[in-house]
Design a protein around this nucleic acid. Structure first.
Lengths: 189, 189
DNA sequence: CGAGGCCTTGACCGCGGTCAATGCCCGTGG
DNA sequence: CCACGGGCATTGACCGCGGTCAAGGCCTCG
């Protein structure tokens, strides 16, 4: 839980009282490797911070998975598209390792916005960070070849690229595992 | 300017005093067709709301343009990636028609966050809206063929698809004008 | 030792890219 | 009023990369 507090303090200032309140609003949640934080069709009912572990976000279209984001220690986890309007999600969030989360429900988050002085500001700054990284990934689809997107993945997720199997990396890059294999081969020549 | 106030009021509640303040913090700005709101290498120094007109966001990689977003009446315009950390942009924002903007500088926006009661909340809700639409577009690259992305464009931008030349639509879809032409032909058979 | 999951490799196919030519619309100037 | 030119959409021919299907190798784990 200290990790959560530290992470929040790295974004905005909060008082000791507010630290206590935040401790009450969040609860711990554990996911085993392979377990889902959110599955297509469900409503995303909480946002969370990753304490330890690793998750991936993906979409599924008739069996074809597209992994569009990885989150690890210190990252926020939420499908805003479902969480905000409380509508069924079109996305999936899955733990790739045993993962410890600090989760907050929608209602408790609204309390945080109201009762913590810098609450709204925290919410704004947190989403701004994620927004920028998603936008970079979107623009990479317009600017970069699959090979460049693979290299970009290695840079962007340098710390976790060893913890992710190739076929998830391939789906992140937007190609099939066979093609990623060929690209890697070409690159080493 | 009334359009700006109405748009803000559709998101959060503001007092009459605050309406006056907001009127001072924003300034009008006009762009001629083809003119740029922001060009690669510049720092994005203001955020804006579109009163009338149409803009496109695009990235440029050795001559190849990728149009990743269109904004029209009532949409906010800003490259957060450059605006927030005040670093040179990698993106371009260009008017496709004569366009009227209500613009606010970085410093004035910070004043708005501080001095308008629901300022932070406004900022959060505004970016949340854009975030969700960008995320839908990103996931479309994973789920959909070029043909489906074209049809998705027609739905998402139904009101403006007639105002945008085909080669910008093609660059939005992520293909060349020739390919879009072939796709359109196939679809009518 | 056998089974299953994952990565790799090969052969073939199809879509989108590229290059080039044509047609169309429209604004401009002789 | 018409001739010209530039910008844009279209079409055709050809190419190459990534998809698909299938097989083989290499782990780990029971």
């Amino acid at each position: 839980m200290q990790l959560l507090i530290d992470r929040i303090k790295s974004i905005v200032h909060i008082s000791d009282d507010e630290v206590g309140l935040i401790g009450q609003l969040f609860s711990e949640r554990k996911l085993k490797k392979g377990e889902h934080f959110l599955q297509e069709g469900q409503i995303c009912r909480s946002a969370a911070l990753i304490g330890t572990g690793l998750v991936r976000y993906y979409v599924n279209e008739d069996g074809n998975e597209g992994t569009y984001y990885f989150g690890s220690e210190g990252d926020f986890v939420c499908d805003y598209e479902s969480f905000l309007p409380r509508t069924p999600s079109t996305k999936n969030i899955q733990a790739l390792e045993d993962t410890l989360l600090f989760a907050i429900s929608y209602d408790n988050l609204q309390r945080l916005y109201r009762e913590v002085e810098a609450g709204e500001r925290l919410g704004r700054l947190a989403i701004e960070q994620v927004f920028v990284s998603i936008l970079q990934q979107l623009s990479s689809f317009y600017k970069d070849s699959p090979e460049l997107r693979y290299q970009r993945f290695l840079k962007t997720f340098a710390g976790i690229s060893q913890r992710v199997p190739q076929y998830y990396i391939a789906s992140y890059v937007g190609i099939k595992p066979q093609s990623l294999s060929r690209i890697r081969k070409r690159a080493t020549l």
